[in-house]
Each structure stands twice: as structure tokens, then as C-alpha cells.
């Protein structure tokens, strides 16, 4: 329990630091969103309207000190008032982000978890049957695949399955003709659209898990306690899971949590290549549009997700590894 509390304290401090840095960074960039908006309307905005916009965005340097705007920012952040998006004007940032988040969580989140589970399983069995068919075929294949950038694999996948074979859609999360809602037709369409990006992420991400898990497994199998488990006459299944597997997975947990944290930032390039309406694509848009409020919200979200993931990893490691609990 004390372990969890200490971790939680650490989590809060890091979060505060991240929020503060998140406040400072955009203010070091030249320009402001009202001016960007002005540029968007090619100067056809009168000064009063500009002033109104500045108040709206809360960027009018004239009427707020740096400090008070910091505390205003803190208060707004924790109550979910993240400002108004420029890209999706006049939608509030929180609404825009909430629209993109499920897409990313669904696509990148599912594939990340799947890649970890599948990769760990394959690595576990490969390491267990060292020198077997699985162990001699998969690792080299995935070393090669992992070396390709995933957007390149995505482009090839689009070319082959979308353009040449015309089996699957070229991109986007759903067809433009769809009515968005919980209908079978829509869900099916979303799934069809997710096949290529999901497969792209899966094949590029799984290799790392296979290789590390396989190597952990080979190391652990040489341990005395595994020999001891054999001497005890335990079933191979039991030895593989509770003696070898459980110890071999420990070093991978932190890496897994980190990758979970980065789910929210999305596989930016994959979402870009597939024109997928997720957070990664939105982040790119916000940068292109000088959309500070949106950028800030997204960075904050990413930081938050990474921190939560680390917290989860710590707790998970403590549950699986008794040695961590006391130190």
C-alpha cells in the first residue's frame, strides 16, 4: 500500500511539472492564435472582432499578467476547459479531442495490446522450444520487418491491397456515405477501414516483443529454478508459465506500459498515411494551423497517458514481482 501511495505522489508531482511546461512552451513560440485566425480570413476581420477573438482565446497579452494567466490556465485545465480550437473553430478543444480519441484508442490501443500479447506469447513459446520451427522462422522474419519504417509498410499495404487489388479502402476511418452511429453497417465499415492500419502497426510492433521475450525466456530457462522445477517433475506447461514465463515477462512490463502511454499520441505517421481521424492526425493538423489550444490539450493528454501507463506498470510489476514491493 505504501508503495502505491509513494508512486501516486510521484505521479502527481510529475503531472504538475508536465502541465507547467505545457503552459510555457507554446508561449515561447512566436505568433498567437488570434493573429493566425486573422491570417486565415485573409485580413477581412475588423479590429473589434480581432479583440473579441483575443479575449475568446485568452491570448490578449495586454489584459492578463503572465502569472495570473498561469493560474487561470491551471484552473481551466483541471476543470476541462481547454479553450477553443482554431482548426475546428468554433468547437471547444475538449470536444474535438474527445471525438478523435476513440478512433486512436480503438486502433492504436487495440493493436498495441494485441502486439504485446501475441508477441509475448510467440516469444515465450519460441524461447521454450528453442531451435524449433517457430524459433527458427519468426525471429529473423520479424527482425527484417521491424527494420522497415511503418509508414513505408503502410504505403506498400495501401498500394497492394487498396490500389492494385482494390480489396480494402485506401484510408479514412469510415466511408463518407455512412451515417455515424451504433449500427452494424457502420461498425462493420469501421472494422474494414481499420484492417490495413491495424495490420501495419501490428506487424511492425510485434517483432520487438517476440525478440525480447524470446531472449528473456532463453535467459530464464538457464536459471536453476527452472532446472529445479524439472527435478520436481512438474508438468512442462506449469514450468513454462509459472516458472519460466512469469519471470521472463517482468523486464518487458515497463516497455509495454511505455508503449501504452504512447498510444494516445497515436501512430502519427500511420494515421497520416491512412488519413485516419485519430489523435495523431489531429496533432499534425493543430501544428499546421498554429492551433495552440489544441496542441496544448493534445500534449497534455499524451503526457497524462504516459504517466498513467508508468503508474500502471509500477503497480503491475509490484504485483508480479514480490522483490519490487519492499525496496
Amino acid at each position: 500500500m505504501r508503495f502505491v501511495l509513494r508512486r501516486l505522489g510521484f505521479f502527481m508531482v510529475t503531472l504538475w511539472a508536465a502541465v507547467t511546461i505545457n503552459f510555457l512552451i507554446p508561449r515561447l513560440i512566436p505568433g498567437n492564435p488570434a493573429l493566425a485566425m486573422l491570417a486565415r480570413y485573409r485580413g477581412r476581420v475588423n479590429p473589434q472582432a480581432l479583440h473579441a477573438l483575443e479575449i475568446d482565446f485568452g491570448v490578449g497579452v495586454a489584459h492578463q499578467s503572465f502569472i495570473s494567466s498561469y493560474f487561470g490556465y491551471l484552473a481551466n485545465t483541471f476543470t476541462g476547459h481547454l479553450g477553443i480550437s482554431l482548426t475546428f473553430f468554433p468547437e471547444p478543444v475538449s470536444k474535438a479531442v474527445l471525438q478523435a480519441l476513440p478512433w486512436t484508442l480503438g486502433l492504436v490501443g487495440t493493436t498495441t495490446v494485441l502486439a504485446f500479447l501475441l508477441g509475448t506469447l510467440i516469444g515465450l513459446i519460441g524461447g521454450w522450444r528453442r531451435g524449433g520451427v517457430l524459433d527458427s522462422v519468426l525471429p529473423p522474419v520479424f527482425i527484417v520487418i521491424s527494420a522497415f519504417p511503418y509508414f513505408w509498410i503502410g504505403l506498400v499495404a495501401i498500394l497492394v491491397f487498396g490500389v492494385i487489388l482494390k480489396w480494402l479502402p485506401l484510408g479514412s476511418g469510415y466511408s463518407v456515405t455512412d451515417t455515424i452511429g451504433w449500427s452494424w453497417q457502420f461498425v462493420g465499415d469501421v472494422l474494414v477501414h481499420s484492417i490495413l492500419p491495424a495490420a501495419t502497426i501490428l506487424i511492425t510492433a510485434i517483432g520487438g516483443w517476440i525478440l525480447t521475450m524470446r531472449n528473456n525466456m532463453v535467459t530464464v530457462l538457464a536459471e536453476d529454478y527452472v532446472r529445479m522445477a524439472r527435478a520436481k517433475g512438474l508438468r512442462p506447461w506449469t514450468i513454462m508459465w509459472t516458472y519460466a514465463g512469469r519471470n521472463a515477462i517482468l523486464p518487458n512490463l515497463v516497455g509495454f506500459a511505455m508503449s501504452l502511454g504512447f498510444v494516445v499520441s497515436g501512430a502519427i505517421l500511420v494515421e497520416y498515411v491512412f488519413n485516419y481521424p485519430g489523435v495523431g492526425w489531429m496533432l499534425l493538423q493543430s501544428v499546421l494551423n498554429d492551433d495552440y489550444a489544441l496542441m496544448q490539450a493534445l500534449f497534455l493528454l499524451i503526457t497524462f497517458a504516459v504517466l498513467v501507463a508508468i503508474l500502471v506498470a509500477d503497480v503491475l510489476t509490484a504485483i508480479l514481482d514480490p522483490r519490487v514491493r519492499e525496496s
Binding site: 536459471e223 536453476d224 529454478y225 532446472r227 529445479m228 522445477a229 509459472t242 516458472y243 512469469r246 519471470n247 517482468l250 508480479l320 514481482d321 514480490p322 522483490r323
Partner: peptide, 8 residues
């Protein structure tokens, strides 16, 4: 090393 570190 002969006792499994993650089991009681």
C-alpha cells in the same frame, strides 16, 4: 537461484 523468486 534454485527457488523461484516470484513464488512464496
Amino acid at each position: 537461484n534454485a527457488l523461484n523468486p516470484v513464488m512464496t
